[in-house]
Each structure stands twice: as C-alpha cells, then as structure tokens.
Design a protein around this nucleic acid. Structure first.
Lengths: 207, 207
DNA sequence: TAGATTGTTAATCGATTAACAATC
DNA sequence: TAGATTGTTAATCGATTAACAATC
C-alpha cells in the first residue's frame, strides 16, 4: 500500500465489494461508478476516487469489469492470508457478533476467546477454545492474532488495555463503553452503540 | 435546539455524560475540560466547544460543576419523555444488543419487536411483545415509536424501508449489511460491523 | 497579583464534491 | 462523430484545532 488511504475509504471499499458480489450473482458483468454509487448511497465521484485508491481501473465506454474489480478489492482488502481474531468477553453479545459478522468471512479467522468467568472458560465457543483472561498475554502471541473484538464490561478495560498493548494486537473493535488507552500504533475502532442510540433519539426529537 | 449541532458532537456529549456520572460516583464535584478530554480521548478545545453547544457553562477558576453539567446534558440529550424504540429482527443479535445497550437507559424505552419467523412472533422478548412483521405499519403509529433498531437479514431491507417510511419512525440504527433507501427526513445510522472489521484487518496488515 | 481556565473566533486540516480533459 | 464515462485535479465544505481576550 503506497498511498495513504483513509479508514473510511477502506470501509467503503468493503461495502462496494459486497454489492459487486451480489451483482455477480445476478449475472451482471460490468458496472458504472454511478450505479455503484446509487446502490451504496455515495457519489459517483467518490466511488471512482475510492476505486482508484485500490488500484482498480475501468474503461470510459464500459465502466468497470466486475470480476476485475472484485479481484483488485480482494487483493487490497484481504492480503494473502486471513487475519487472526480474538474475542474478549465470551458472553451473548460477543457470540452474537461473531455469528453475524465474522462467520463466512474468509479473510477473517477467529482463533481464540477469553473471559474471566470460570463458567465460560475451558469450553468451546463459536468453534474456538475459550481461555481465562490471565492466559491471554501468553496465548495471543503464540496464535499470531492481530485483531481483537471487545465485548467485555467497562470494568475490564484497564486490564485489557495492558494485555492488548503487550501481545502484538494491531487492531481493536471495541464495543465497551470506554475507549482503551492504547498507544498510537494500535488502531482502535470504538463503536459506542448506547451513545449512537442516544444521539438518534436527540436528533429525532429536535426535528 | 436553536443551533445546528452535528450528530458526531451529540454522540460525544453522550460520552462525556457517562464519564461525568462515574466522576459523581467517585465523589468528585468539579471537572476541567482537559480532564474530561483526557478521559474520553478528545481535545479540551473540543470538549469546551461541545459543552457550549449543550448550553452548559463553567467558570474560569473551578471549571465545570459536574451536577450542573449532567443536568444540562440530560435536558439536551433526553428531552422530556423517553424515546420509544422498536426492534426489527428478534434473533440473538437483536436481543443481545437490546440487553447490552438499551437496558437501564431511562431515556430510551423498547415498546415492541417484529419478526417474520412464526416461531418468534406472539411471544415476549426483552419484556415486550414480538409481532409479525406484517402488523408493523398498524402497530408502530399506535405505540408512537420514533426509533427503530434493525438486526434483520439483508433480504428484509426493502420491505423494512417501506414500513419505516410510512410509520412515523424518525431515526434508525441499522446493523444490516445494506443501508436503507429512506427519505431524508429520517436519520439513519448504519453500523456495518463486517466492513469495520475488514477495514481494521486491512489497516493492520499495512502497518 | 500571577496563573490557569473558560468562551469564542480565526486558522488549519482533511475529506467530499465539482469540474473537465482524455478516452472509448 | 456524438454522447457518456473515466481518471485526476481544483474548489468547496465542514469539522477540528489553535489562539487569545476575558474571567476567576
């Protein structure tokens, strides 16, 4: 990856790819940037710009060849081998998120779960072993995991910050209410669902 | 609400409030913008600007009085009565999200759930009745619900777009893979967890 | 007073959109 | 050719940050 491309742009590339796949299933072979834009809610200008960022090329007469585009996006987004993911907090939320969003993603592979509840540890959840949280610093580097999904409660965050900083994790998707004080080499995407809901409520009230 | 304030700023206000509440529990009575900034990961300049947007005031010597601040934020974010929320898709993900993020939120109240699976309908989930999706257009206006949370699969999106447009819903938190073609009066927050994960994986690979 | 913070404006930054020559 | 699209730069827009007088 030579150029700097924003995280938002990468998220959009992933969204484009999903639509391209559905177009393939419908038997389409070519697509114009404005079609992709209409289906995803962005502008055609932005679609073209984003695709450029992934080194994709189209032609002025036929637009983009879908198969080529998907290939370029696979190359850009997925790399050579699947990213290895661990889950912190093996409760209902964690399991639901894994089942809905990680399942069938060839480029992402769950390799372990961690919890501090002895009732949940030393069992298999979502196809992987669930370890006690105290084993994390040892196990994560051995598994070569680079991504973490956090659905643990607020109180666990300080401990998890320390574990994550020291175990080679490079990206965190955090559903806990608090962001994690991580050093800047680690990417954190904090999804604060409670606050998103409250913002929606506030906005809908003022309309 | 006289001034235009961005959705992002409102989300931050909700995040500040959560920290202010934890400070109260710790017996604190005053806070400076830079303390709030350090705990939430923003800049003190932004904190001051955001608080201004919620009509909050501090003093140059003692910073902000926490109780006053929470009161202002309650007023600004919550309004007079709780926003009524419905859930589309009463599966594991929907239930988990409700339990984790809606529970104990005084300003948000779940009033109904909808599903198209006859095994799930006409039961109580998360304390409310689960109706069949075909009843939604009739029931939602009666309940005066204004917010919807969507955890239904991709295929249900076109039907849900039509239901939501016609039933008085004003804000949507959408976890489905596709955004909903809604008219511009309705706020949609589309949280695309799969794409967020893929973006994290892509970024962590290029580091 | 001296030092630090608030409220608020101006400057900066980055991302989105518009524009258009080159191309098919 | 005429019409429409791509690739790419310039203009616009909005949000964040820096700056500083007023205040305590």
């Amino acid at each position: 990856m030579q150029q700097t491309i924003s995280k938002k742009a990468i998220v959009r590339l992933s969204i484009y790819r999903r639509y391209l796949r559905s177009l393939i299933r419908q038997g389409e072979s070519h697509v114009y940037s404005h079609e992709l834009a209409a289906r995803t809610g962005y502008t055609s200008s932005q679609v073209r710009r984003d695709l450029m960022g992934a080194n994709a090329e189209g032609s002025a007469s036929k637009g983009y060849k879908i198969k080529d585009l998907i290939h370029k996006l696979d190359e850009f987004l997925d790399g050579d081998e699947p990213a290895k993911v661990v889950l912190f907090g093996a409760g209902k939320l964690g399991k639901a998120i894994l089942q809905f969003f990680l399942n069938h993603q060839r480029s992402l592979q769950l390799v372990a779960a961690f919890d501090n509840d002895l009732e949940k540890t030393d069992r298999v959840i979502c196809g992987v072993h669930c370890y006690h949280i105290d084993q994390a610093k040892e196990i994560i580097p051995n598994l070569e995991a680079t991504l973490a999904i956090i659905t643990a409660p607020d109180a666990a965050i300080p401990q998890l910050s320390s574990i994550i900083s020291e175990s080679g994790i490079r990206g965190v998707l955090n559903f806990a209410p608090a962001p994690m004080a991580l050093d800047s080499r680690i990417d954190e995407q904090h999804i604060d669902i409670t606050s998103e809901l409250q913002a929606l409520a506030c906005l809908s009230r003022s309309r």
